[in-house]
Design a protein around this nucleic acid. Structure first.
Lengths: 107, 107
DNA sequence: TTTTGTTATCGTAATATTGCGATATTATAA
DNA sequence: TTATAATATCGCAATATTACGATAACAAAA
């Protein structure tokens, strides 16, 4: 066992859970917060700023990219990772929609 | 390794990540959605509705309770699990605050 | 008191995540 | 071309999560 039974849930539930899951790590929260403070972002900065190994940071960036929250552009010999505003806003809207439609009380 | 280095992040980052993490499972999303549709909630219903074993559902409920999203009241010989509206609203506000303060673009 | 129904907890197996060193890749600089 | 610097990927070890059967706990009904 141990495998999440995604097949018994619908696409909306799986997608929503996936977004939440990716955001559910303090390093990834910290990365997003740090990037949003900068005008440009280089991974190397993050290694010093966050305090995790370069390989680990790279992995977290990859996951944030996987849900479209970050987009990376090659800039010289380093990478410029940026928050994708359109995606960011869409995600926020999505989450709020979940919160607003799922809150009726019962007892 | 494999242990998340919570000590290198601040409380706000860890808490936020914890909320996201708990919401990051389709079964827990489905549970919240189902509860919000009902007027009362009994765990037994959930087992049939969601399609996971009773022990598994109970575990997911426990996690949702751990961040205060659900409160359970004993009602006869079954449990009435409800969404805690105050907590729910506070959490939504919290997440929106994160989204609003963390979105400046760079490139 | 005994039975019955409901939920919680324990123990365990399967899988996923986290983190890092080592190494590959890629682009500029020398 | 050969360094050099930045980022990505691989492989692995440690830990966490997911799921479930078995069983405990507990309250109402018989």
């Amino acid at each position: 066992m141990g495998i999440t039974k995604t097949q018994i849930f619908d696409q909306q539930q799986n997608e929503l859970a996936q977004f939440f899951k990716i955001l559910g790590h303090p390093a990834r929260i910290a990365i997003l917060q740090y990037i949003s403070k900068q005008n440009t972002c280089i991974c190397n900065d993050l290694v010093e700023e966050i305090g995790l190994a370069q390989a680990t940071i790279s992995q977290h960036l990859k996951e944030l990219k996987s849900i479209g929250l970050l987009k990376g552009e090659i800039e010289g010999k380093s990478m410029c990772y940026c928050i994708d505003i359109d995606r960011w806003t869409a995600l926020q809207k999505n989450l709020n929609s979940f919160f607003n439609t799922t809150k009726k009380n019962c007892c």
